[in-house]
Design a protein around this nucleic acid. Structure first.
Length: 886
RNA sequence: GGCGGAGUGGCGGAAUGGCAGACGCGGCGGACUCAAAAUCCGCUGCCCGCAAGGGCGUGUCGGUUCGAGUCCGACCUUCGCUACCA
């Protein structure tokens, strides 16, 4: 019978709150669990069904461990700085803090409505001055260690909009909004020297229980080993240094390329070539990274300069081309067209010589059709000819070093982290600069800021709060909106004027260390009490989206390591075990394909055409369009779904990403109102493995609700106080074992399936045994906590219901009897020549002879043995019996 | 192009190298009902067969094994990430 989920769930949420049921307490001698969710950005759209997926997973583990007697820290907070609130402010004039506060209120309500066992007394908000204070404190530590520094970095500056734009906001060199020109302009930016930690960030991944994310981080860090080599420039005193991972191909270097933004590019150009070089450099500067990589055709110009190949004294031309990046390696390369695809392409285009120096077989192959990039045997390489690639790499590097021409070098793709934003809604960077002025800069008198002398705000002055602004629009000053807050920006100290930094921190800042603040969230005198750290760290389980696999998780690890180095934290890594929940797609839709003349094409005969959204009929290439059809237009026929109109045309069932445009967004508020929070929780866990991408299916949600109703019905029947019958007893212990182990391995879908089987069995009994219902309700408690509390505490001791005192969250998880989870008698399959021909009921540890006897009792098995002799017998007790006959 | 997942009924999915398809959805049949909904019970991979039973089945091809969804090799499809990093 359906229960009143709204009444029950609201009541128990109030109970937990009133009784502080989930206050995190640390008691001596108990194991602990720190279960952490990636805290959300409180957007104006409210909670998405994707959020509760990961949150339910950690909540089940947290509640389970509590019941096992562990001390649990399971907190929640808000990553509340960010662009949308600022955009909203620009459009409406509402202060971002008030937008944020109301968004947070919505998120908090929605999360409470789902019954998560968070310790709400530890709630944090990255925009709260009490939190921001410590974000700024960490920045000052970075600054003091020389890890936060200023540099000129090219950015997308749009003078008309008066703002810096992100790469994706720039299209064809114009602003996405308004189509104003955008220039790449160097701007003073704060950077964090994450590259100083590149090695440790890569190496320490080894010990972590993380998924494929580790590979992504390694790739992002991009460690490579090679050599730097100096090339003398003809007629100049400087030489050009290059980085290469293939020093063994040095004999094949037939030209060089210097990045357009390399400091020497224009300098080394000959007078005849200089105008062309300058034009190319200017054009390259105005291109964004996106544009540069979108256009694959190699371009470049000859600088007129020539360098000398140090191994053979050959003069080789120096080009500038934008396929070489100024920011990687030395910003210049030796080009070996025979053994590098990019150089091959460029050389072909510009008619440059291609010299083979590595051969797969040691022989020469004449003109190459493609670059050979594999390792091989050196050819045409002087004294190194005949060496393998690996040998020659080592030898030639040593040779270069001995001659003073180069050295071994490790390089990283990882760049230093541009840490400043020209935005309002972020943490102010707690730095100020000396100002030269004759009057009062706040009153408009001329001034000059000396950015070369940054001064740290004194720790006692933290938090440095944001000033209120009347207008949050970027004001045409690359320094950002804060530059307009003159009263805030300028101040006098000991008679001298100073100006605050007007850039703010990026959104990543607050999330870099939030897991540490949960330990001691209201501490005003320290980032946290070291005792609190010892109680709970490290994080035992961290669940969140894979979209943060690189940036957030890498930045957080970086800050953690810095804090480790200055003795603030005691573990080199913050997150021991990491899991990414899979995305939830929309309800699948039925798609049929139709030609322009209205005729249908079976979905298995349709392939994608030129574009992503173009479909064509396989073979003919006739374009077809995808049409959404209703459930009632389709019937199930042999081997698939077919259109009813002709009974022939195959139809496809496709799940798309949830989006407003498709109209397939599921709102948790609606689900909770109609089916209840427990249904949503259990359904999201039942959909499939946590890490997997899964389509939402409202019908499946209904099935889960049906299961919960069934639990409710069975539990409210008159209970029997006699011990369970042996079958029930066995099933109880087996189910408990499976549910316990499945929770520990985050296999929630199969745990739920096991509970469904148990309920189906208990429902078949005349009067379910009390112990059975008790265990069922206990097992269900981490998954569907509201219903479990209700069933645990309601009823009367005389007959129906368990009538036990709340809260079930504090009741000990039962223990199963290992002797009751193994079957004495098992049914095994009997195979003849590997095909199942019958079954045999056997004792678990039956001997081979007994098994053979049991198998021969089966009539069908005997039929297949007729006239043949058993040549071999494979018997795995409890599993299989295979008779090989001939 | 590179890296990493994933391909199992009509759908979501389950299976320490050992009876493929648990559990749920959907579908079909039945009970209850004046009727419907809800609920309960049964059946449900495909093909042949009245049935007993048989054949075929985990993307494709090959291999290892008494035995392969699972292990190995090649390929196809698909999703995600990444993309001139020398």
């Amino acid at each position: 019978m359906a229960y009143d989920h709204l009444e029950i769930e609201g009541r128990w949420q109030r109970y937990w709150e009133d009784h502080q049921t989930f206050r995190a307490l640390r008691r001596a001698g108990r194991p602990k669990l720190y279960a952490l969710d990636m805290f959300p950005y409180p957007s104006g759209h409210g909670l998405h069904v994707g959020h509760p997926e990961g949150y339910t997973a950690t909540d089940i583990v947290a509640r389970y461990r509590r019941m096992c007697g562990w001390d649990v820290l399971h907190p929640m907070g808000w990553d509340a700085f960010g662009l949308p609130a600022e955009q909203h402010a620009i459009q409406t004039g509402t202060h971002p803090a008030s937008t944020t506060a109301s968004n947070v209120a919505t998120f908090r309500r929605q999360l409470r409505m789902l019954g998560f066992s968070y310790d709400w007394s530890r709630e944090i908000d990255t925009t709260d001055p009490g939190y921001m204070k410590w974000t700024q404190w960490i920045f000052l530590k970075l600054f003091a260690k020389g890890l936060a520094f200023q540099a000129e970095v090219p950015v997308n500056w749009c003078p008309a909009l008066g703002t810096v734009l992100a790469n994706e906001e720039v299209i064809d060199g114009k602003s996405e909004r308004g189509g104003h020109p955008v220039v790449r302009q160097p701007l003073r930016q704060w950077q964090l020297r994450i590259t100083a930690y590149a090695d440790r960030l890569a190496a320490d991944l080894d010990g972590l229980d993380w998924p494929e994310t580790k590979a992504k981080q390694r790739e992002w860090i991009g460690r490579s080993e090679g050599a730097e080599v100096d090339f003398r420039l003809e007629g100049r005193s400087e030489s050009l240094r290059v980085y290469t991972t293939r020093p063994d191909t040095l004999f094949g270097a037939t030209y060089m390329v210097i990045a357009p933004d390399h400091p020497l590019t224009v300098t080394i150009a000959t007078p005849e070539q200089r105008p062309a070089v300058e034009a190319y450099v200017a054009a390259a500067r105005s291109k964004s990274d996106l544009e540069r990589t979108a256009c694959r055709e190699k371009t470049g110009v000859f600088t007129g300069a020539r360098a000398v190949n140090p191994v053979n004294g050959e003069p080789i031309p120096v080009f500038t081309a934008d396929y070489v990046l100024g920011s990687y390696g030395t910003g210049a390369i030796m080009a070996v067209p025979a053994h590098d695809e990019r150089d091959f392409e460029f050389a072909t285009r510009f008619g440059l010589p291609i010299v083979e120096v590595v051969s797969p077989d040691g022989a020469l192959h004449g003109p190459l059709a493609n670059a050979f990039t594999e390792p091989g045997i050196a050819v045409q390489s002087g004294q190194f000819t005949g060496q393998t690639t690996a040998e020659m790499k080592g030898d030639i590097t040593a040779w270069l070093a001995a001659k003073g021409l180069g050295e071994a070098k490790v390089n990283y793709k990882l760049r230093d982290w541009v840490f400043s934003r020209q935005r309002y809604w972020g943490e102010p960077i707690p730095i100020y600069f000396p100002v030269r002025t004759a009057g009062d800069p706040r009153g408009g008198d001329p001034y000059e800021i000396d950015y070369s002398r940054p001064i740290a705000v004194d720790q006692s002055e933290l938090p440095l709060r944001l000033p209120d602004l009347e207008d949050y629009k970027p004001g045409g000053d690359p320094a950002g909106p804060l530059a307009k807050a003159l009263e805030w920006r300028f101040f006098q100290k000991d008679g001298a004027w100073y100006a605050r930094e007007t850039n703010t921190m990026p959104q990543w800042a607050g999330s870099c260390w939030y897991y540490l603040r949960y330990l001691d969230p209201r501490n005003d005198t320290a980032i946290f009490d070291p005792a609190a750290y010892d109680e709970w760290m490290p994080v035992d389980l961290y669940v969140g989206g894979a979209e943060h696999a690189v940036l957030h998780l890498l930045y957080a690890r970086f800050w953690h390591k810095v804090l480790f180095d200055i003795g603030v934290v005691k573990h080199p890594e913050p997150f021991q075990k990491l899991v990414h929940q899979g995305m939830i797609l929309g309800d699948p839709q039925l798609i049929a394909y139709q030609k322009a003349d209205g005729s249908w094409v079976s979905s298995d005969r349709v392939t994608t055409g030129a574009g992503d959204e173009d479909y064509v009929e396989a073979g003919t290439g006739v374009p077809v369009t995808a049409v959404r059809v209703g459930d009632d237009a389709v019937e199930k026929k042999a081997g698939g779904l077919r259109l009813k109109v002709d009974g022939e045309t195959r139809v496809q069932s496709v799940a798309f990403k949830m989006s407003k445009a498709r109209g397939n967004v599921v709102n948790p508020d609606d689900v909770v109102r109609e089916y209840g929070a427990d249904s949503l929780r259990v359904y999201e866990m039942f959909m499939g493995p946590l890490e997997q991408v899964k389509p939402w299916q409202t019908a499946g949600l209904k099935g889960v609700r049906r299961f919960l109703d069934r639990v409710h019905t069975v539990a409210r029947r008159p209970l029997s106080d006699t011990p369970p019958d042996p079958t029930t007893q066995k099933l109880l212990h087996k189910t408990l074992k499976k549910v316990s182990e499945d929770i520990e391995h985050l296999r929630f879908n199969t745990a739920i399936a096991a509970m469904m089987e148990l309920v189906n069995h208990l429902a078949s009994l005349e009067a379910p045994p009390r112990q059975g219902i008790e265990w069922l309700v206990l097992m269900l408690a981490p998954f569907a906590p509201h219903l479990a509390e209700e069933l645990w505490s309601s009823g009367d001791a005389a007959g129906g219901g368990l009538a036990r005192p709340p809260s079930i969250a504090d009741v000990a998880w039962p223990a199963y009897d290992p002797s009751l989870v193994v079957d004495e008698v098992v049914e095994i399959g009997v195979q003849v020549n590997g095909k199942v021909r019958g079954r045999a009921l056997l004792a678990r540890d039956a001997s081979e002879a007994e098994a053979r006897e049991g198998a021969l009792a089966d009539e069908n098995v005997r039929r297949f043995l007729e006239g043949k002799s058993i040549r071999k017998l494979v018997y795995v007790p409890g599993r299989i019996l295979n008779l090989i006959v001939g």
